[in-house]
């Protein structure tokens, strides 16, 4: 069974193999995420408390504590309603905008580009799954792929802009460069590699300039490389690296009602 997304019979990349890669990435993610939740859940459930003797970290305890803090009234003078926090502070990233418009453009471009591409890939995958299951759709997977092509480019460019700003900041602004540690570099390197390999694989496949003139026969392995790297960084590495902030930061902002 061939897998549609840029991988052909040529390298025998099958649907099953792609699913196996994805499943491995998800398993690594789940293992790490449960570990992170348990680590957070080793904390106490309220102000000034102590963990019970012999108590182990528990993901459930974390979730309950978080939810309880989300629901309770905040004493912070600037606490905002949850819906406002969700829209303005989590999705629109108002707290970053308040501090630096350049950093907001950078972060919001990466966030919007990354999340939308992730969602578009998910939609493509869903359509392909539906087709594999033999359910008839009013369009073919090829038509759907063409339909997604434009938004894929738009959000790909958006991501690229954000990533380039991030790299330039980290390399050329002295105070940012000097404060950067491996924890920061790994995140940036991951996003950069995914973005660049995405454009590269697309360029080879469609004979565009960023394919660097490589033979279209090399498109499938390039796409495979991009897929595997994306799965590793997008999913598997999240709990183990700075990518964890993708989950932890919105939760913190919500728990603190938009922050102090």
């Amino acid at each position: 069974m061939e897998y549609f997304s840029g991988l052909s019979e040529f390298i025998k990349m099958t649907f099953a193999q792609a699913i196996i890669f994805a499943a491995i990435a998800i398993l690594i993610f789940l293992y790490g995420m449960i570990g992170a939740l348990q680590k957070w859940g080793s904390g106490v459930t309220g102000y000034g408390l102590e963990p019970q003797a012999g108590q182990k970290g528990s993901a459930i305890r974390f979730l309950k504590t978080w939810w309880s803090q989300v629901r309770e009234a905040s004493h912070a003078p600037h606490a905002k309603p949850l819906l406002e926090v969700l829209i303005f502070d989590v999705l629109f990233q108002r707290r970053i905008l308040k501090r630096s418009s350049l950093r907001w453009i950078m972060h919001f471009s990466i966030f919007a580009g990354w999340m939308t591409l992730f969602a578009l890939s998910g939609m493509m995958f869903t359509v392909e799954m539906i087709e594999k299951l033999g359910i008839e759709l009013p369009f073919t997977t090829a038509q759907f792929r063409d339909f997604l092509s434009f938004p894929n480019y738009i959000f790909g460019y958006l991501l690229l802009v954000g990533v380039l700003i991030a790299i330039v900041r980290r390399l050329f602004i002295t105070e940012v460069r000097e404060a950067s540690i491996m924890y920061d570099w790994i995140l940036l390197a991951g996003v950069f590699i995914i973005t660049i390999t995405g454009f590269w694989a697309d360029g080879i496949r469609n004979g565009l300039i960023w394919g660097l003139g490589l033979n279209p026969m090399t498109a499938p392995p390039a796409a495979l490389f991009h897929s595997v790297i994306s799965l590793l960084f997008c999913i598997a590495a999240v709990p183990y690296t700075k990518y964890i902030h993708v989950i932890a930061t919105p939760l913190a902002i919500l728990a603190n009602k938009g922050g102090e």
């Binding site: 309220g46 964890i244 902030h245």
Partner: peptide, 13 residues
């Protein structure tokens, strides 16, 4: 001790 589950998460945020 004294560090809530949410505060431990904040470290990662």
């Amino acid at each position: 001790k004294n560090l809530t589950a949410v505060q431990l998460m904040e470290l990662d945020s």
